[in-house]
Design a protein around this nucleic acid. Structure first.
Lengths: 208, 208
DNA sequence: TGTACATCAGTGAACGCGCGTTCACTGATGTAC
DNA sequence: TGTACATCAGTGAACGCGCGTTCACTGATGTAC
């Protein structure tokens, strides 16, 4: 594998941390939050259980690290997807296409995240940690949407946060359903609904 | 409590079953599916753990009974809500009002159901059982929506199943978010989005 | 109506298991001189 | 460059706990005669 002997302590522990997060992501997706054991995760990364406690506060904190990593990647992905589109609506079609593609690759991400949310809702401190990440994610999406609207001369009739919440809610609801009823029609339905919502909540900017 | 001595065996076991389902509903809502123990549930109903195994196949089957009970009630509730409305859109507003009201009373129902779905997704037999109930529920909602559309001379541009799926997905997504970020604005947002979707996917029937 | 036996709803204790967390320890890295 | 000590990342075994499920048993209900 990677050479371990030449690394400083800081490099070494940072690498361990990253490997554990990556393994945790894999195993959490495979087994769900409750179903995944720290044994399996640490073994997947080539360590023992104690390593998790050396780098993280416990199972919850490890999961939060997975979430942070995930949100960063997704934020970049969507920003890139919107980059080259010619108008407001097709920018959103590109974002949706990207969202649908990653949804196919990792259909269990949304159920996993929602499973964790439900777990976190019962613990004040953990819920706050989740809420903060949710807000960060919402702000990033809203900022992207505003930028896209600006770039293509579109006026939002609702705050971008609200629009993002609605779209995300629908995406999550459909992802959850898909795990019970795999159905390709859900993706097309999702696209049509989002376009309908966008049209209802935006208008071309008057050139004044 | 209720007199136990005069009951036949069938009545007795039916009552036990109903009491267990009711207690299970309470405790599942309180603790979540994974967090609830059969000990707490049976104690809540005034029995011991074994009683659950006398009436049900196990924890999963008990939960399915809770779901069946729940879906029956909700189906009736929504049908009643739509009863007296004057037109298509206000019928849907009434249904939404009813949905929002029960959502306030039992904000944990949706997260609970989704937690179970995610659990069930990992077991083929259980997933089939959940899928069947989901389909039953979808058919009932779709039938109601078609009846409402018919009654008020409205043409659906999409199958009522698809429209229900979209609306339900959004409702679920927002319910899940609410457990992390309690926010009354979500309810108003939900209403507006559903109305926007209805308008996009229906048109007044031409009187020909 | 009464008696003897069969059935079975619900009991309650025990089983078996897996998991998150802890902690004394090891050996490689870092530091002081 | 070398030596002696300090630090600390990761080990690995044990702990403690709770839970779903099983099962021999009890006593009330049901049945046959």
């Amino acid at each position: 594998m990677t050479a371990r002997l030449r690394m400083t302590r800081a490099e070494r522990s940072e690498q361990t941390r990253a490997e554990l997060v990556e393994a945790a992501r894999t195993v959490f997706l495979r087994r769900g939050f409750h179903g995944a054991s720290l044994d399996e995760i640490s073994a997947e990364a080539g360590y023992t259980t104690g390593a998790v406690y050396s780098r993280f506060g416990g199972k919850d904190e490890l999961f939060l690290a997975v979430v942070d990593d995930h949100l960063e990647r997704r934020t970049r992905l969507y920003a890139d997807a919107a980059e080259d589109a010619g108008d407001f609506e097709s920018a959103h079609r590109e974002i949706m296409r990207a969202a649908i593609a990653v949804g196919r690759e990792e259909p269990r991400w949304t159920p996993l995240l929602m499973e964790f949310w439900t777990h976190a809702a019962r613990d004040d401190e953990l819920r706050a940690a989740v809420a903060e990440r949710n807000q960060r994610n919402l702000d990033a999406s809203a900022q992207l949407q505003e930028a896209v609207a600006d770039r293509h001369g579109t006026t939002l009739l609702r705050s971008p946060q609200e629009m993002q919440r609605a779209v995300t809610a629908m995406a999550r609801g459909l992802s959850l359903e898909r795990q019970i009823v795999p159905d390709a029609g859900l993706e097309a339905l999702f696209e049509d609904c989002v376009i309908a919502l966008l049209r209802a909540f935006t208008e071309p900017r008057s050139t004044e």
